[in-house]
Every structure is written in C-alpha cells, then in structure tokens.
Simulated assay, not measured.
Amino acid sequence: MHQSQDSGLHVWQASGSCSPTGLADGEPIAVDAFRRVFRRHPAGVAVITVSDGAKPVGFTATSLASLSSTPPLVSFGIGRTASSWAAVCTAEHLAVHLLAEDQQELAATFARSGIDRFAPPTAWRPGPYGVPLLEDVPAALVCRKVYDLPAGDHTLVIGQPVHAVEGGTARPLVYLDGQYGSVSR
C-alpha cells in the first residue's frame, strides 16, 4: 500500500489504482443476516424531497451520509422499486431534511406507501430550485444532484449542497432495531 498526492489530496491505494474492483467472488452473506447486523447500527433519520415537475415527492432515508467536506457532498441510497425512485433519478436538485426526535410521525409518513405524503398535517413550502422544503425541521440542505450510481437493488445518489436551512437545535431522530428513538447530548 502506498500514498499518492494529487493537488493536495492524499489517496491511499492498494495496488496503484483506486478504481472500483467489482463485487467479491463467492457468495455474499444472507440478506436476513445482513439486516440483523444493521438493525444494531443506529442511523440518523432524514427525509429526501424533490419535485417531479408536477408535484412534490419524498421518502424517509436512514442511509444519509456526509461524504466530503471539500467540496461538500452528501450521499444516500434509494431502492429502485421505491415509488420516489424515478423522480429522484430525474431531478436536478433535491432537499435533505434532518429530523428531530419529536418528528417520528413525519418520518413514518414519508416511509408509508400509497399516501399523499405532502397532505396536511405535513407543512412544507417551495424552496430554491422548486425543491419542496419541510417546515420546522432542525436543518435542511438543498443539493444539486451530481451523481447516480447503481448499487445492488439501490441507487447511490450524491448531491452537492448549494443552500442550507438551519433551524433550532434539537436532539436528532435515530432509527435502531426497527424503532425510532433519540440520543442524548
């Protein structure tokens, strides 16, 4: 293993390359075992919203990650069978909303299928680039979508924040072992 330097960035490389190597040979672990392991991993809860041109679209995500600080980038995954998938994949901009511990019902609303997730009591307004912005969330980022990457049965979406909305401080909503909860500070 060696270190390369390019324009001030340090990249660790195993064999002179940092390109994708593909999936591992052999059988992966069983889906049930994979899910059981990740049920033990607490995840922050976010709602992702986009406009499909005619109406607002959104879903609950627990896969949100801060990917890079220079430049700022975030990532999340969305299942390709999700009702929001087509709108997210065609959108140029999206909003990422971080939820507070008292917003469990909002998270549950955006996780339900077959309902109008933006109907009352959901409070929202059009934001920059026409992206739907949820009201009363602790923080939100409006992002320009820069990359979609197929990954198994999901698509990994990478966005570059172009606008921040900072609300009040609140304990974050987390998801652990199939339930919503919070963490203390």
Rank of each mutant, 00 (worst) to 15 (best):
M1C: 09
M1G: 15
M1P: 13
H2E: 14
Q3S: 13
S4I: 15
D6E: 15
G8E: 07
L9P: 00
Q13L: 13
S15D: 15
G16F: 02
G16E: 05
C18D: 13
S19C: 12
L23R: 13
L23D: 12
P28L: 04
P28I: 01
I29V: 14
I29D: 12
F34Q: 06
R35C: 08
R35E: 04
R35T: 10
R35H: 13
R35W: 04
R36N: 12
V37F: 15
V37D: 02
V37I: 11
F38P: 03
H41C: 09
P42F: 06
V47S: 03
V47W: 04
T49M: 01
D52I: 10
D52K: 07
V57W: 04
F59N: 00
A61Q: 01
A61H: 01
T62S: 11
S63M: 04
S63A: 05
L64G: 01
S66Y: 00
L67K: 03
S68W: 06
S69H: 11
P71W: 07
P71N: 03
L73M: 09
L73E: 04
L73Y: 02
V74S: 03
S75L: 08
S75K: 00
F76E: 01
G79S: 14
G79N: 14
R80W: 03
T81K: 11
T81E: 11
S83N: 12
S83T: 14
S84V: 04
W85L: 00
A86T: 14
A86H: 11
V88Y: 02
E92S: 14
E92L: 11
L94D: 01
L98Q: 05
A100F: 03
E105M: 12
E105W: 01
L106R: 06
A108K: 12
A108F: 07
A111G: 04
A111D: 07
R112M: 09
R112N: 02
S113R: 14
G114N: 09
R117K: 15
F118P: 06
F118A: 08
A119G: 09
P120H: 09
P121V: 08
W124M: 04
R125M: 11
R125D: 05
R125H: 13
P126S: 13
P126I: 08
G127I: 06
G130S: 08
L134G: 06
L134Q: 02
D136C: 05
V137Y: 04
V137T: 13
V137I: 10
A140P: 07
A140Q: 06
V142C: 08
C143R: 03
C143T: 03
R144T: 09
R144A: 15
V146K: 03
Y147N: 13
D148F: 09
L149D: 08
P150Y: 05
A151S: 15
L156T: 11
V157A: 02
V157E: 03
I158E: 07
G159V: 04
P161G: 07
V162G: 03
H163K: 09
A164N: 07
A164E: 10
V165Y: 14
V165T: 12
G167F: 07
A170R: 10
R171V: 06
R171A: 14
P172V: 03
Y175M: 01
Y180L: 07
Y180E: 05
G181T: 08
V183Q: 10
R185V: 12
